[in-house]
Amino acid sequence: MDAADAPLARHGSAGGVLVGSAVRHRRQTLVVLLVFAAALGVTGMTAERERAKNQAAYDAFLQTGLPPPAPKAISGATLTVQERL
């Protein structure tokens, strides 16, 4: 027996192995796809939320002409980054 077949053999006869294995793989694929879709969904929602927040802030700025107070323009990480160029 080829070493690569060893995990399959643990599940019984050749036909049973293939059927059981195929079902297991379909389940695994489904789980991976569900996790993947969930990750994309969370990303999409956070991106859309930020876009909407930015747009609302910008629209308010156009109405009033007044920006909110500016955050500090410095951080330690930025100094490190800015050494690059």
Partner: peptide, 8 residues
């Protein structure tokens, strides 16, 4: 890095 500031 400095996200809030550059977004502003």
């Amino acid at each position: 890095t400095e996200h809030r500031h550059i977004t502003w």
